[in-house]
Amino acid sequence: MENNIVEDVQNARGDKEYSAGGAKDKDKEPRIIAFVCNWCTYNGADLAGTSRMKYAENVRVIKLPCTGRIDPLFVVEAFKKGAKGVLVSGCHPGDCHYTSGNYHSRRKYTAFRDLLSYLGVDINRVEFSWISASEGNKWVSVINEFTNKIKLLPDNSDIFSKK
């Protein structure tokens, strides 16, 4: 099964297929994959657009109905595919379109952090934030600040990166 975490780890350890980082990307902005909910953060990101705000080009957004749908394995997969940072963002507490998806996701993530850390992913590379549909400016600052934060981190030391 392609998303078996044990297999993931094994693959990644002696892996040739998955490579990330490397000299050629040094000057590039670090790739961020953002998992966002359809109702708040996706609209917030759209609002940044309609307001013609500017931010770093390195983010790739994956839209899901709700943060409650975000499987921790998506995060693992994102790192496997070379992401330097993963952003998970949804509605503010109490504002989830489905009332409680963001709580589930928060709870799930808290448990998942340790595993990520065990896998060797620097926890600083995973960012959780609440961005509402009216917070285009927050989207911009979260992306920019997260990008800068990642740039300051030591090279990916996790098992997904090729040394």
């Binding site: 109905p65 749908r69 799930k108």
Partner: peptide
């Protein structure tokens, strides 16, 4: 909402339109 999908340990429930395989394909 898809919350159930992540709750299932045996991967027996999926969300149409946002299937696991679709999201993994995107990544």
């Amino acid at each position: 909402c898809g919350a159930c999908v992540n709750a299932c340990f045996s991967k027996s429930i999926d969300l149409k339109g946002y299937l696991d395989e679709q999201i993994f394909a995107e990544i």
